[in-house]
């Protein structure tokens, strides 16, 4: 706690909102819900700032999905920046979201039931689940920060986090590049009265809810057994 609570938590939030792996405190040492916030930030795809640097493609995937859903709601062929969003683009965007989910959940699920996964945990109970989740969320989500507390220097974690990084980084970039290629080829449609504006509050709300719904759908079950359960147990006077 070198920098005090306020500075530490601010840094933790900012570092996980962008694809930045620097830390100035051990996220492992936070209260359960305090540790959950950085976890959620990365789970949502590090898009809270709208994607910094290479994180831009993270939010772009959600923009494609949100534009598509908005277009269907008003019964028009969805378009973004004058380019029509068609089934190929939606397919690639979904693929990018799927890869993130798949890598994090499958690796975490194997780690929590196998001895070579659980032996690295330094705190038993729900906190151990948070540690494992954070490891894979951070390595897949292109963040790089460590929760701390988990001994990741084992054969299992060294191998799987390496694979997770590979999948989370490059197999995320490939579908996004595919979308970019397909959009670049399309003709630009002139803006008309029926074009859904992507600058207003309505679209922002829609984009935020798309991100939250996809994120909640994917990770809420895991979070409820990790940080949320730990928080409830802590209030009941049980600490790990």
């Amino acid at each position: 706690m070198r920098f005090g609570i306020a500075n530490s938590t601010l840094f933790a939030t900012v570092t996980t909102d962008a694809s930045c792996g620097a830390v100035n405190s051990m996220h492992d040492s936070y209260t359960p819900l305090g540790g959950m916030v950085p976890l959620i930030n990365i789970m949502l795809g590090e898009v809270v700032f709208g994607g910094v640097g290479a994180g831009l493609y993270g939010i772009f995937v959600f923009v494609v999905l949100a534009v598509f859903i908005a277009g269907l709601m008003v019964g028009r062929t969805p378009e973004y920046l004058g380019k029509k969003i068609e089934s190929y683009d939606v397919k690639m965007a979904m693929l990018a979201v799927l890869i993130l989910t798949f890598t994090i959940l499958i690796f975490s699920a194997v780690s929590v039931v196998k001895p070579y996964g659980t032996s690295s945990i330094s705190n038993p109970g729900p906190h151990g689940l948070s540690q494992i989740l954070y490891t894979y969320v951070s390595s897949t989500g292109n963040n790089g920060s460590a929760f701390g507390g988990l001994n990741a220097n084992t054969m299992w974690y060294n191998t799987t986090t390496a694979v997770a990084q590979l999948l989370g980084r490059f197999f995320m970039i490939i579908p996004v590049l595919a979308i970019a290629g397909s959009l670049a080829k399309k003709k630009t449609v002139p803006e008309s009265a029926g074009t859904f504006p992507v600058t207003g509050g309505l679209f922002s709300g829609l984009l935020v809810s798309t991100i939250l719904i996809v994120g909640a759908l994917t990770f809420f079950p895991a979070l409820s057994l990790g940080p949320i359960l730990e928080h409830l147990l802590m209030n009941a006077g049980k600490v790990f």
Binding site: T101, L105, L217, T218, F219, P221, A222
Partner: peptide, 11 residues
Amino acid sequence: AVVTLQPFAIY
């Protein structure tokens, strides 16, 4: 999400 809930529950 649902399938991986089972290992988490076992843990």
